[in-house]
Deep mutational scan, measured.
Amino acid sequence: MQIFVKTLTGKTITLEVEPSDTIENVKAKIQDKEGIPPDQQRSIFAGKQLEDGRTLSDYNIQKESTLHLVLR
């Protein structure tokens, strides 16, 4: 499925993911596309910070959902 990741600069990245993917996985995909190390990424969805060990389905993130990426 496709999800979108919006950065603070307003750029939107499209990722191909599975509901079973962990947040860690997703951060690795963002690193592949953007070169941002996962330890600098904070992902926010529906106002909640997403934890690395959880999966997209844990957070009820579905296709075409938009995550927000904040850098630390």
Rank of each mutant, 00 (worst) to 15 (best):
D21R: 01
K33R: 10
Q62L: 10
L56S: 01
Q49Y: 15
Q2W: 12
S20Q: 10
E51Y: 06
K29N: 02
E51D: 10
H68V: 13
P19T: 08
T9I: 07
F45E: 02
S43C: 15
G10F: 03
E64A: 09
P38R: 13
S57H: 09
Q40L: 11
D58L: 02
E34I: 15
T12S: 05
F4Q: 04
D58F: 14
L15A: 01
R54K: 14
Q62C: 04
G10A: 02
D21W: 12
T22K: 06
T9N: 12
I61G: 01
I3M: 00
E34C: 14
D39Y: 12
N60L: 06
T14K: 08
L71S: 09
G47N: 07
R72E: 11
K6T: 10
V5P: 00
H68Q: 10
Y59S: 01
K63F: 06
K6H: 14
L56Q: 02
M1E: 01
Q41V: 15
P38K: 15
M1P: 01
K6Y: 08
I30P: 01
L67W: 00
S43W: 15
Q41P: 08
D21P: 00
I61D: 01
I44K: 03
T9V: 07
R72S: 12
L50N: 01
G53C: 06
T9A: 11
Q49D: 14
V26C: 04
E18K: 14
D32C: 10
Q62A: 09
I36C: 08
F4I: 04
E64W: 14
Q49I: 15
V26Y: 04
S57I: 08
N60W: 05
I3D: 01
Q62E: 10
I44F: 15
D39K: 07
F45I: 06
Q31F: 15
Q49S: 11
K63G: 13
E18L: 14
Y59V: 03
H68L: 15
I61H: 02
R54N: 09
I23S: 02
E24C: 06
I44W: 14
A46R: 13
I23Q: 00
L67E: 00
I23R: 01
Q31H: 13
K33I: 14
G35A: 05
G53V: 07
I44N: 04
P38L: 15
L50P: 02
L71Q: 09
E51N: 06
H68F: 14
E16Y: 13
E51H: 09
V17A: 04
L15D: 00
V70Q: 08
L67M: 05
G53S: 12
G35N: 07
Q2F: 14
K48T: 12
K11D: 07
Q2G: 03
Q40F: 09
T22W: 04
Y59L: 05
T7Y: 11
Q40K: 10
N60V: 04
P37I: 10
D52A: 06
E24V: 06
Q62M: 10
K6N: 05
E24M: 12
T7L: 15
T7H: 04
S57Q: 12
D39H: 12
T9L: 08
